[in-house]
């Protein structure tokens, strides 16, 4: 089953086209890594899927629900407000800068959305938060404030916060770019664990070795286009296009 279907997605900022004719699918349980040089449109792609940017044209289907469609007269339109919100709750997003709520404890960061948005019972949400914190190796940090944690710990909290809503697809927007190499490792470990559990994920990343190890599919973007997409063996192998090889060479040297 397709968790994400994208067809001919385009997006411009003024006269600058940042996404051109993007099409790809993500199946249930699949881990997709999106790689490519800075400014290639990777983050914008993720932000369009997560409704943080307004796409200009194309089709987006999330978990079988139409989010962006062409209507009868060929115009590109978004689904109604309620559908868009339902879609948001089925997807989770982890940011590069964590974006934790600084005035709330770690635990409150995790329980706030389940309690306020999903109207879950407080004790139930709290129990779930404890489980997630344990899973992230942060069982002692529930009462801390985000500013008291390291970057890697903060990012693990933000992953727990996204997981608390039981999303069907989890998106990561360069989750390790704000972290030093040591802390990067702990985040990548968490994502690997989630992959093992069968979580469907789309990860924008500059960690090439990680993309090769974890991803079922790798998408290479440049200049707003998908230049090449396929299994990691293909993109990281001898038969990849010259552009992809050239890009990867810089990481290997």
């Amino acid at each position: 089953m397709s968790m994400l279907e994208i067809r001919n997605l385009s997006k411009s900022f003024g006269s600058l086209e940042v996404l051109k004719d993007i099409s790809f699918d993500v199946k249930k349980g699949e881990v997709v890594a999106v790689i490519g040089p800075s400014g290639s449109g990777k983050s914008t792609l993720l932000r369009c899927i997560n409704q943080l940017e307004h796409a200009d044209s194309g089709v987006i289907k999330v978990c079988g629900t139409d989010m962006l469609i062409k209507n009868g007269s060929g115009k590109t339109v978004y689904a109604d407000k309620k559908t868009l919100r339902d879609i948001r709750l089925k997807t989770g997003l982890v940011f590069q800068n964590f974006n934790l709520f600084p005035h709330m404890t770690v635990k409150r960061n995790i329980t706030e959305a389940p309690v306020c948005v999903l109207k879950k019972d407080k004790t139930e949400a709290s129990k779930k938060a404890d489980e997630l914190l344990k899973k992230m190796g942060l069982e002692t940090k529930g009462d801390s404030y985000p500013c008291e944690l390291s970057g890697g710990q903060q990012q693990r909290v933000s992953i727990a916060r996204a997981l608390a809503l039981n999303p069907e697809v989890l998106f990561f927007d360069e989750p390790t770019s704000a972290l030093d190499p040591e802390l990067t490792g702990e985040i990548l470990k968490v994502i690997k664990e989630l992959a093992k559990e069968g979580m469907t994920m789309v990860i924008v990343t500059h960690e090439m070795a990680f993309a090769r190890d974890v991803a079922d599919k790798v998408i290479f973007m440049e200049g707003g286009y998908i230049v090449e997409a396929g299994a990691p063996e293909q993109l990281f192998g001898e038969n990849a296009s010259d552009r992809v090889k050239q890009f990867l060479q810089r990481f290997n040297s």
Partner: peptide, 15 residues
């Protein structure tokens, strides 16, 4: 980013 995180978690504008 605070607005974006809140939006991604499904909070409405008032919340």
């Amino acid at each position: 980013g605070q607005y974006e995180a809140a939006g991604a978690l499904g909070f409405n504008k008032l919340q």
